[in-house]
Design a protein around this nucleic acid. Sequence first.
DNA 1: TGAGAACGCGAGCGTTTACTCGCATTCTAT
DNA 2: ATAGAATGCGAGTAAACGCTCGCGTTCTCA
Lengths: 205, 205
Amino acid sequence: MTRQPRKRPRQARSRATVETLLEATTRVLVDHGFEKTTTNRVAEVAGVSVGSLYQYFPNKEALIGALVEVHFTRMRALFASTLAAVADGPLPLAARALIEAVMAGHREHPDLHRVVLEQLPRLGIQAERDGFDAFAVPLIASYIERRRADLRPADAHLAAWVLMRTLQPLVHAAVLRGPEFFADPAFIDEATALVVGYLAPVGEI
Amino acid sequence: MTRQPRKRPRQARSRATVETLLEATTRVLVDHGFEKTTTNRVAEVAGVSVGSLYQYFPNKEALIGALVEVHFTRMRALFASTLAAVADGPLPLAARALIEAVMAGHREHPDLHRVVLEQLPRLGIQAERDGFDAFAVPLIASYIERRRADLRPADAHLAAWVLMRTLQPLVHAAVLRGPEFFADPAFIDEATALVVGYLAPVGEI
DNA sequence: TGAGAACGCGAGCGTTTACTCGCATTCTAT
DNA sequence: ATAGAATGCGAGTAAACGCTCGCGTTCTCA
């Protein structure tokens, strides 16, 4: 159940082993899907012994957890820096920039994301995503708070939560739907409209 | 892999068995979670032999699939009838009614939904949800189409898809977050605002 | 250069779990 | 009443898979 490596790699040799194992995990996940991803197969693909695998990853979950951790860490950085950069501009531009940033963060390994995202709940990794929410929601909330006068939502925190729980799956759905859709500018337009329409003061009808 | 029952129950006795098995599946899922739900345990809880279980369900997946099927069937009916009832009224009322209907549909067995929803991808049931989308998206699209003059989206089908992929996870997230949040009227207000803001002509800012 | 730490190995153990099979029991229809 | 269909049984099988353990190899450092 522990997620921490049983042993930290100290020598260059073992750091390379860990690296190779993570790459192999990615490949196996993508090529064979989650079900068929076994520790033995990962080790085999990595050209490493299972025993060595278990020196650095206490269990299978930790292996995939490490991959997920990398993703969320990158997304946190990406999200925070993008928001900081656009926080003072007009809302539509800010929304668009954030959406594009999140999408860019998923464009790198779309097939890996597809497999892992689908299986997130299965892992103890619910916690990881909740962790991302715990990080991002306050950021968005304080953005809304600061512009309270220009925006509709009364409860900034609730609105931020709604946005997270709305955009995240929307982007994921777009990723799952394949690259040609994912890249479609019309999709980004709609996602932006969703955010702006939600935050902006009530329009007509 | 087949999802169809290996044999259809003909006598009252066997129909009762199937019913009992489904109830037991629900209970085991709720009480023990997905991981610990084994066919043997389900049979045991049902007070039925595993052998009998496999007479009517070709595999474990079919067992849970049957449960999911019931849910989606009910949701389709609920969704269609609600939309038909409010299609001619004002948008905010229609949106609210639909959201409330969907939420009502999840209020019945929230703990079951929690377990099953989390694990949907794991099953071959992606298909089931896609089936629901295939059913609901055209309905929404034609609603938008009909009111094209009063609404913003140019591409009705895309807009309908975005709404589906937005609201569904939002409601699910609310379910997962627990009943006290789920019942909160502020949440319904926000979800409604999301839909209305998205569909209505551009507001200010 | 040698001792001890770090690293690597992989056959195989132990457990879990979906699923089968041969036979017993109960129902239906004539 | 009875043949045959439907239903029910549950110990047992087979396969998958996470993970261990004992031992060999390579590195670090004084």
